[in-house]
Design a protein around this nucleic acid. Structure first.
Lengths: 119, 119
DNA sequence: CAGGATCCGTGACGATACTG
DNA sequence: CAGTATCGTCACGGATCCTG
């Protein structure tokens, strides 16, 4: 099974940067997971599964793995019985908070804008 | 063929806002197209096709259509022979410039960060 | 030129069952 | 509990051909 960090290899610097970011963030769930962890702090797998409405275990597992590869979260296996695992935002991941806020902000304005023009 | 603006219908306000934004932006190409149009101003279909490296005509056409639905760009058919079409960012779309800058910025830092830790 | 129609392969994702 | 393995579906996106 390959575990490589995906960094885009394309011509233009700016386009690469954009692609890199989108590679990390895109999909329905990644940002939601980050946002949830930013709010709640440490969380276990099942908590995330319940909180992130609509996601399946397989997808959650995969997304968490990718987020860990990108150093945005940490994964800690506790030696309890039965096993529990805790996920937590890294300081580096926390730096994404501002970007997520911008994204949220834009989404709110966009919804307004769409309603205004269409009705 | 349905042409509806997709606005997410989920529980939480913040999550909805995030999903709305990602709905508009996600995929490899949308932001690239916007960025390109921000730089070059008016562009024709074929210009965009050449400039946006790797995209196919079908996908470009579809993405442009979606961007137009979201009022980020305008599509103008010129009555020339043969027909030409011009795409251009709207003032509203131009408001996304700041967000795109943030995304680009984060991508650059992320690339640095990944190299630092892995080598 | 600007795309639509069609065909088709691949991979993403859900559901279910199973393991340490 | 925290996943992995397996199966099956389906929509995305590429390639090609066609049209006003």
């Amino acid at each position: 099974m390959k575990k490589e960090i995906i960094l885009t290899q394309e011509c233009n610097q700016e386009i690469r940067a954009i692609s890199d970011t989108m590679e990390v963030l895109s999909g329905k769930w990644k940002i939601q997971i980050i946002a949830t962890l930013l709010i709640h702090g440490k969380m276990r797998f099942m908590e995330l599964l319940r909180t992130t409405n609509g996601i399946g275990a397989k997808k959650l597992s995969k997304d968490l793995e990718e987020l860990e590869m990108n150093k945005l979260i940490t994964r800690t296996v506790m030696n309890t019985k039965p096993i529990t695992v805790e996920y937590e935002i890294t300081p580096y991941g926390r730096k994404m908070e501002h970007l997520i806020n911008k994204i949220t902000e834009w989404g709110l304005k966009h919804r307004e804008h769409m309603f205004k023009e269409n009705n």
